Amino acid sequence: MIPPFETTFAVPLSCEDCIKDISGSLYKINGINKVNANLKEQLVSIEGTAAPSAIVEAIQATGRDAILRGTGKSNSAAVCILESHASHVENKVRGLVRMVQVASNLTIVDLSIRGLSPGTYHATVRETGDISEGPESTGPIWEAANAKKKGSPARGIFGTVEVGKGGVGTVFLDKPIEIWEMIGRSIVVAHQQDGKFDKNDADTLVGVIARSAGVWDNDKTVCSCSGKTVWEERKEQVDRGML
């Protein structure tokens, strides 16, 4: 059983009615234990076991946007932006993987993809973070060699996600893995689990796993490099295909 964890989201809030509206929508989700909102800071904090993607969807259902600002404790969260390396694809970003370690040797994985052909996709962690040649340069599945010797599944095999007719797929998994073990590696999402990948296949995605902010580690309201607010950055990300 997954222990509860905390996530915080930046949400545009104008009054107490906004908080009531959002809270009502969130408490309809299974796995929500507590919702706290800070009108002044424009932040909503949620405690429970619900997937961050489900939380964002519930907030957006009220007509407001939401940006994930942090998940879990310091050094316990990671993120992977999944992109297509196909030359003919205009919007390269087609997926996002959020990961948070909620206990010793237990990490939850929240994977969302969109804009892909319907079917079953395999998500695997690869040995390296080299995506210079798309999925082909990422190396073998993480710890596949050791797993073969032991006769057990490789830890890098996350599982499958089903993409429907609308081109969208989501999956929420828990794995006996620690966050620090995955930082700097990569994730491949493709129709096939392993073998020779085709980087020009628009339905094959790849991204590098990077450390993400803990629940109180990211207080950014303006990007230090561009001077843009998080909402301006959010619009650009959505335009690029970010979930």
Rank of each mutant, 00 (worst) to 15 (best):
171 V>C: 03
14 S>H: 14
74 S>C: 01
25 S>H: 11
200 N>Y: 15
216 W>H: 04
190 A>W: 00
180 W>V: 08
111 L>Y: 04
180 W>P: 00
203 D>E: 13
170 T>I: 09
123 A>P: 03
42 Q>M: 04
84 S>V: 03
44 V>Q: 04
81 I>V: 14
144 A>M: 14
95 G>F: 03
51 A>K: 00
55 I>P: 03
18 C>Q: 07
243 L>Y: 05
67 I>N: 01
155 R>Q: 15
49 T>F: 02
91 N>T: 06
169 G>N: 03
111 L>V: 06
37 A>H: 04
171 V>T: 12
157 I>A: 08
28 K>Q: 14
235 K>F: 14
51 A>I: 01
127 E>Y: 15
120 T>K: 15
31 G>I: 03
123 A>R: 02
2 I>V: 09
149 K>Q: 06
105 N>T: 11
129 G>M: 10
103 A>S: 14
182 M>H: 01
213 A>N: 15
16 E>G: 06
144 A>N: 06
143 E>W: 14
194 D>L: 09
160 T>R: 10
181 E>C: 15
161 V>S: 08
48 G>P: 03
28 K>L: 13
18 C>E: 08
109 V>R: 00
119 G>R: 01
180 W>D: 07
208 V>P: 01
5 F>E: 01
77 A>D: 04
40 K>Q: 09
232 E>Q: 10
243 L>Q: 05
69 R>W: 00
170 T>R: 15
81 I>C: 01
44 V>F: 09
128 T>W: 05
119 G>C: 10
143 E>T: 06
72 G>N: 05
189 V>G: 02
98 R>P: 02
1 M>R: 11
37 A>Q: 03
22 I>E: 01
186 S>N: 11
183 I>F: 06
149 K>L: 12
75 N>A: 06
33 N>T: 08
193 Q>L: 13
37 A>P: 09
132 S>D: 08
77 A>I: 02
204 T>N: 05
225 C>T: 09
